[in-house]
Amino acid sequence: MAEIVSRQAAKIVAGTKLSPHEAAGKKRVYVITSPAAAAWAQNDIFASGVRLPIGSRILCNSYVSNEAMGAGVTLDVGLRDWTTKVAIDADGIAAAVDVAAAGRTSLNNGAFVAAGVEYVTTVVSEIYATLGGANPTDDKQIRIEVCVVTTD
């Protein structure tokens, strides 16, 4: 049986230093919690307010926990540039996740994490979310937990 050499093992054999996001960085959980009262509207955005450093890698074990947000309501979770607030990818972490009914759902279908992709930030970023699909029910609570490997 053949042994396939991982990227990390190949770098070590070549004498190249591994970056923290490749092998042994710190796992952190970035949290976004809705306000106690919110007059939600379709396509409203809410963000973490926390800087995600350059060289961070988004992991695929993130979750959303929410009350019933209302029929047809979906959630996108992505990254935007910390300084300009321009989207890097509005649904790079999770795309069109059903949050109509109360529950806890995995956030792992975005382009940054789906199908074996390893996305590493190239600019200081911020995690943010968008409620779409329909008008969410006011004051309903939602908590997003995004797992990331950072360089520090």
Rank of each mutant, 00 (worst) to 15 (best):
M1C: 12
V5P: 07
R7D: 01
Q8K: 03
I12T: 00
V13N: 11
V13G: 09
G15L: 08
G15Y: 11
G15T: 05
T16P: 00
K17Q: 04
K17P: 04
K17M: 04
L18T: 00
P20R: 00
A23K: 07
A24W: 10
A24Y: 05
A24S: 15
G25W: 05
K26T: 15
K27M: 14
V29A: 12
V29L: 08
Y30G: 12
V31H: 04
T33G: 10
T33K: 09
S34I: 00
P35K: 01
P35G: 10
A36K: 14
A36W: 07
A36C: 06
A37I: 00
A39H: 07
A41C: 01
Q42R: 09
Q42E: 06
D44G: 05
F46G: 10
F46L: 05
F46H: 04
S48M: 06
S48H: 01
G49V: 12
V50D: 06
V50M: 05
V50A: 13
V50K: 12
R51F: 12
R51D: 09
R51M: 02
P53F: 08
P53Q: 14
I54N: 15
I54F: 08
I54R: 11
G55K: 02
R57E: 10
I58Y: 13
I58H: 04
L59G: 04
C60F: 10
C60A: 15
C60G: 05
N61F: 15
V64D: 09
V64H: 09
E67V: 02
E67Q: 07
E67D: 05
E67L: 12
A68I: 02
M69P: 14
G70Q: 01
A71Q: 10
L75K: 08
L75A: 02
V77S: 03
G78M: 01
G78R: 02
R80L: 00
R80T: 07
D81T: 06
W82H: 13
W82S: 10
T83Q: 07
K85P: 03
A87Q: 03
I88L: 13
D89K: 05
D89E: 08
A90Q: 03
D91Y: 09
D91H: 07
I93T: 06
A95C: 11
V97R: 03
V99H: 02
A100Y: 06
A100P: 03
A102C: 09
G103I: 04
L107W: 09
N108K: 11
N109W: 04
A111D: 12
F112E: 14
F112S: 13
V113K: 02
A115M: 14
A115T: 15
A115Q: 10
G116Q: 13
E118N: 13
Y119V: 01
Y119M: 04
V120K: 08
V120L: 00
T121M: 01
T121V: 07
V123C: 11
V123M: 15
V123R: 05
E126K: 04
E126I: 01
I127F: 01
Y128M: 03
A129C: 09
A129D: 00
T130F: 00
T130I: 05
L131K: 01
L131I: 07
G132P: 01
G133N: 11
G133P: 00
G133F: 01
N135R: 06
D138T: 07
D139W: 03
Q141H: 15
Q141N: 03
I142V: 14
R143Y: 12
R143A: 05
I144Q: 00
V146Y: 04
C147K: 13
V148L: 10
V149Y: 13
V149P: 00
T150C: 04
T150F: 07
